Amino acid sequence: MSHLEAVPATDAQLLRAHIQGDPDAFGELFRRHKDRMWAVAVRTTRDPEIAADAVQDGFISAFRRAESFRGDSQVTTWLHRIVVNACLDRMRRIRPTAELPEYDLADRHDRHASAEVRIDVQQALGEIPEAQRLALTLVDMQGLSVAETAQVLEVAEGTVKSRCARGRAALAELLRDRQGDGYGAAR
């Protein structure tokens, strides 16, 4: 495997090496993708504790089921699908108690407006249907293509486009309503 040390192995090569018994290959996949999977899990679950558990569940599942990777998508798309499914499984078990994470807003001097906007967006995301939220999270926040998102969510590309469009429209309306209220100003 000395040639893999000289030239970084692709994700697919690492997954094959893992399946063939390389004890370090999956660890490298984990190191490469843990941050991105964490980000998608936090945005999907809106709870860092649940996200951490879901990422762990997802990577354990990927480790155990590596042979199930068919190679018809990128390894990252396959990992996204596994982690999103782990998030959904965790959320279904605890619903409806999952709430938005608390933000430390004690130091709001310079970031007051941007913190309020972030909170408004996070809360608005929590109010739109789950299918729309997942599509928006993967496409707009994680930068996956519509095709990759369709593979992760196991739906047609047109469905992803539709969910994104509806989700964006719903978010725009919710945010417009919040800003129109003047953040609590008397009417």
Rank of each mutant, 00 (worst) to 15 (best):
M1F: 14
S2H: 13
L4M: 13
A6H: 06
A6I: 06
P8E: 12
D11H: 01
A12I: 14
L14C: 02
R16M: 10
G21L: 05
D24V: 07
R31K: 11
R32T: 07
H33W: 09
W38N: 11
A39H: 15
T45R: 02
P48I: 00
V55D: 10
D57M: 12
F59Q: 02
I60E: 10
A66D: 02
S68E: 12
R70Y: 03
G71Y: 15
Q74D: 11
T77V: 01
V83M: 13
N85Y: 06
N85I: 01
D89I: 06
P101S: 10
E102H: 11
E102P: 05
E102V: 15
A106Q: 09
H109F: 11
R111W: 15
H112E: 12
S114Y: 05
E116L: 15
E116G: 07
E116P: 00
E127C: 02
Q132R: 05
V139C: 08
T149L: 02
A150N: 13
A150R: 11
Q151D: 12
E154M: 09
T159R: 10
T159H: 10
T159C: 08
G167S: 11
R168N: 04
L174S: 12
D177G: 04
Q179H: 12
G180E: 09
D181E: 14
G182W: 06
Y183A: 12
A185C: 03
